[in-house]
Design a protein around this nucleic acid. Structure first.
Lengths: 224, 224
DNA sequence: TGTTAATTGTGAAGCATTTCACATGAGTAT
DNA sequence: ATACTCATGTGAAATGCTTCACAATTAACA
């Protein structure tokens, strides 16, 4: 339906392409608010600091969504991209660990905007269990496995200390959750078929640090 | 001492290599705690789910740190990597926007561990200005430019609403700060020579979403 | 209705990154 | 000493990603 039919060989789509699709989605939402009817690959590229060819190639992996001479219909393309990313629906998400980062994530607007609904919170701290965060009552982590299953949770966000993250994830895996966003700074072990993405804010600061000490100009050719 | 001298052609180092160096650094810290004297590219690769060749190639861009037949000396390699990344020193960081994410970042352990010291906080909310977060008094954002300069801030973390992020960043740029970690979901415009990295947690959830709807798991999660 | 201008979609070329494969050097044991 | 083993460092091959360049297609307008 969305992918050109008669293509039996599912090409591997690169991680970079998917990340760019996320960015296109965000920009398309903005363009929609700005009342653009259509947008060219040129304009989209300009806003994302990419080449027009890159934009067209990314989209072409999934179909032909534009009109030659005109560009892409904004609303329609946005719908297609959200379909491709799988965010044309609601995902039921649980957050494990209501500490500093966890609390921030409960209120993180970008999640809700894109269909990620945090519907359960877990913690092991008696002072937090039973308390209310943005309308959600914190559950005891003792019941993690059963509650994840009973509530048909599809994704979890792990925001617990590194020391217990693997233990928690083992339980999450037993509850047959197949997608994990991990904030703990460790390499989690999961069986095949379970997807893990790591979020580590220090890595981006480290990149900045590297860039600064090497005097790389962001655009350009190395050394000043 | 660090980079092979007499190499006039500074090869461009890829973003992936830098990110992997961050990961090596973290793993080397762990290995050090586990009392490993040396580590082979094979072992490092296993822990990071990479190939040994990848590890060796990454390191080889910066010098020869290993001993044939033996591997790499853990403590020494860790020191070299931290030198390469520029985290063998303290960076003076300011955090702008003490909201949900901002507050979480003040307490984020990975920053301190790697030399990123948040020494200033800014907000525009009168109720927050003057309050104390982990020993730091929140400053009025009105004084942003002068205080950034007076306190010799080298990096800023922008955790303000998207609507005001560009305005804030313009001030930050005027204060001659050259490195920005941006949590606002917009594409910031900065002049050449200013480094920006974006952090958007929703993007990783979107990647998970994509992975789930495309790549069915081996055991088959019943989705049609 | 024909001509012009715009912009897509896409093979192919051009780069960049990863992996291979092996010579090389270091340590160890006899 | 010599032989043997291990694991690095690195050109070269393989793979993957981005950009180019242009035919194809559409809208606008005379």
């Amino acid at each position: 339906m969305d992918i050109p039919s008669g293509s039996p060989t599912k090409k591997r789509i690169s991680e970079s392409t998917i990340h760019r699709l996320s960015r296109y989605f965000r920009t398309l939402s903005l363009l929609e608010k700005e009342n653009f009817e259509t947008v060219s690959s040129k304009e989209l590229a300009k806003r994302e600091k990419l080449t027009p060819a890159q934009v067209r190639k990314d989209l072409s992996f999934f179909g032909s969504f534009g009109t030659r001479g005109l560009g892409y219909p904004v609303a329609e393309l946005k719908a297609k991209v959200s379909r491709i990313l799988g965010i044309d629906r609601i995902w039921r998400v649980a957050l494990i660990g209501v500490g500093n980062i966890g609390s921030a994530m409960v209120s993180y607007k970008e999640f809700i905007k894109q269909g990620f609904h945090i519907v359960k919170l877990f913690d092991n701290d008696q002072r937090k269990i039973g308390s209310n965060h943005k309308g959600i009552i914190v559950s005891d982590i003792k019941n993690l496995r059963t509650e994840l299953q009973d509530d048909r949770i599809e994704m979890v966000i792990v925001a617990v200390p590194a020391t217990v993250a693997q233990y928690i994830v083992d339980v999450v895996v037993k509850a047959e959750v197949k997608a994990i966003l991990n904030f703990a700074p460790i390499n989690l072990k999961v069986p095949p078929g379970v997807h893990v993405r790591n979020e580590n804010m220090a890595m981006e600061l480290e990149y900045l640090s590297f860039a600064m000490v090497n005097h790389h100009s962001p655009k350009g050719i190395g050394k000043a």
